[in-house]
Write a protein that binds this DNA or RNA. Sequence first.
RNA 1: GCCGCCAUCGUCUAGUGGCCUAGGACGUCACGUUCUCAACGUGAAGAUCGCGGGUUCGACUCCCGCUGGCGGUACCA
Length: 480
Amino acid sequence: MIVNLDLDKKINVRTRVAPSPTGYPHIGTVYQSLFDYAFAKKNSGQFIVRIEDTDRKRFVEGAEEKIYEALDWFNLEEDESPRKDGLYGPYRQSERLGIYKKYAEELVGKGNAYYCFCLPQRLEEVRKIQQAEKKPLMYDKCCRNSSLLEAKKKVEQGESYTIRLKVPENQKIIVKDEIRGEIEFESNLIDDQVLIKSDGFPTYHLAVVVDDHLMEITHLVRAEEWISSSPKHILLYDFFGWEKPLFFHTADLRNPDKSKLSKRHGHTNVAWYQEEGYLPEAILNYLAHLGWSHPKEEEVFSLEEFIELFELKDLSPVGPIFDFDKLNWMNGIYIRQLTVKELSKRLKEYNHNLLKHPIEKNKDYEDEDIFERIVILSQSRISTLKDFFTLAQVFFENPKYILEDDKRSVAKALITQLKEIKDWNKDNIFLVFKNIMQDYKIRMPVLYGIVTGQEKGLPLPETLEILGKEETVKCLKSLV
RNA sequence: GCCGCCAUCGUCUAGUGGCCUAGGACGUCACGUUCUCAACGUGAAGAUCGCGGGUUCGACUCCCGCUGGCGGUACCA
């Protein structure tokens, strides 16, 4: 009896994110990682971080560590990476040079790649001419048909060379994208891509195919700008005779003008989000809405719920504009969902790590109870952690504003009446406010302006109650 | 220039041929609550589904063309 074993064969899902250590960690990398991570976890598979450091010119010292810090902040824990070894290492491409060389030479041997001795200057000139003649900008295939024997001799003599992919002529190459469907490319329009650079490092194209295969990546999630180089990768898989992973090209995050999200128009650096006081779980929830939507159209959901519901194939091909208004709203929701204790803790950590605000203006504010009372007043009024330190400024800083003459007399009256309060509590404070407002025919916002310098803010009586009589009077006195 | 991707309210999106005189969310506005501002609650405005052709009894949904936006066109990723 013949049993179809394939039916029982369950594939082990493996996804990966492959950042280059060329700068600060990008929010787009987090966006990709969210999908990689969620899909891997959903299928009890592995999420891998591979460092693509093959560009030595753009390499930035310390960038790799920053990537891990970012992933840790979002709690997107990888299963394998340079910092977390597994069975498929090394996970840094610069440590895999021998592997790429071996495979590139295998291709040369099979006639699917060739040595090229063209100098960059000549290539540049060729390109200029093509540009002037408005022809496709491509390598002129100068070395494509020279003899392998001669080429090898040159290599042995130490001549500088690259290895190029020998793209077959007159062929249609189909890229199957699981989000967009089949995309057809004309092979004559595909360049004989350099696979091994003259410095011995592979280009992205070779390295990504070799590594994804060797690391047994099953679902390849990458940004849409890779679509046009995908046929080169398909060719490579076919030349090697390797099974292809499933391709998912996600849409790029955009600026309000629809261009790719950039520093100039938006915020791409993960550190910026930390500095502004966003909560990582709120950012993830917001990001999940870009290109994907909850089946029940729910807006707020946990990472766990996302993992349960998410499918890579449901991703949208449309490039979403990054909307900071909605992010702020989402962050506010998450802030309000936190317990007072938890919010207080995060606020203090945030202040300690990023803001370094002098909380010690009054040592009492370091006291849990008092700090938490301030937090309770603030929780529904802030959308970022940073907001808190602006809103509750009066507790941490001496007043910086100057009172106009007419308001100064009100302040003086306030001081006198406030001083007379025996039992310092918000009700008695409010009574004084009522008197003052009546006597001077002013409204609440004006009173706010006098006491805090801003026309709106935390509830005043409660604020002064926490501030204490002595501190309140001291503050007001500094103004008159 | 050439190649490719994309196209529903300002924004994120639902919608897979009839349930759509297009639903939800953010934002905006109004009202309620209220010692300011928020939060919260209720409601309103807001999309002839980019345009033009088909296919069909019927199209936001399928096909073609155009336009627009975006991306690629490197010994960068």
